[in-house]
């Protein structure tokens, strides 16, 4: 899960922050990370492919990776002096067999 308050920054998927007005725009901020699968987890996943269902190891791995992508985005926003990132979007793509890129982007703003 993405811990969205731990940074002291508000993240929303809306075009603003409800109850607050935008004072300043800082433009696009982004963060990404590329993760490869863990060999051990991959072997377990191979077994799991026989019975199907959720692959908890992968779920955790991707959640961690996504949290990191968000973290990088937030760091960029903080450097600009923003206190919120609005209209956040995610994108995932598999760039090579066994590796996935997780990408998060949004607009850094200052809200009051």
């Amino acid at each position: 899960m993405v811990p969205s308050t731990s940074h002291g920054l508000t993240l929303t998927t809306l075009e603003g922050v409800p109850g607050k007005s935008i004072a300043e725009h800082y433009g696009l901020v982004q963060g990404s990370t590329i993760r490869a699968k863990h060999v051990g987890k991959d072997i377990l996943a191979g077994f799991k492919n026989i019975v199907g269902g959720e692959l908890k190891g992968y779920t955790e791995l991707l959640q961690e990776a996504r949290a990191e992508a968000v973290d990088r985005m937030v760091q960029q926003a903080q450097q600009l002096g923003a206190n919120a990132v609005i209209n956040v979007r995610f994108a995932t793509s598999s760039v090579a067999p066994g590796a996935a890129e997780l990408f998060a982007y949004g607009t850094a703003v200052k809200v009051q």
Partner: peptide, 10 residues
């Protein structure tokens, strides 16, 4: 307001 995510790998 706060952003929430949920994900699963099947």
């Amino acid at each position: 307001a706060q952003m929430f995510t949920g994900s699963t790998v099947v």
